[in-house]
Amino acid sequence: MNDSGSSSTAGASPSPANTAPVEHATEVRLSQLLTLGTSISAAVILLGLAIYLWRHASERLDFTAFRTHDTELNAPSTILTMALSLNGIAVMQLGVLLLVLTPIARVAFTLVIFLVRRDWLYVAIAAVVLVVLSLGLVGFRLH
């Protein structure tokens, strides 16, 4: 059983105490990526909310019925073009989209970490997760 990463001298059996510090240092990078992703999306959403409420705060909203034809904000490309013209609703949706991308970026980054460590078993595992996730995001119809 090979050990992870930098130390090739470790001859002892892989007890948790041996591997944990090295692993933990790389896992903190994952944590930083999540902080970055959530911060950016929160900032974009808050900007969108501010623009939206500035213009529409006293407008009446009704979501008691689902509107199937209200689909202009369902595709990433339209969200982006509308957001760039500072449409409040579109900026909010762009932030939400960035939030959805955060866990996917996290899986991709996990894959990179395992690649760098040459941990092929987990490279394979993370790759399967990433492929299924990407299929889900491009709207691969499961139903």
Binding site: V100, I104, V132, L133, G136, L137, V138, F140, L142, H143
Partner: peptide, 8 residues
Amino acid sequence: AASAGVYL
């Protein structure tokens, strides 16, 4: 996130 695309 896996199902978010479909919901969107």
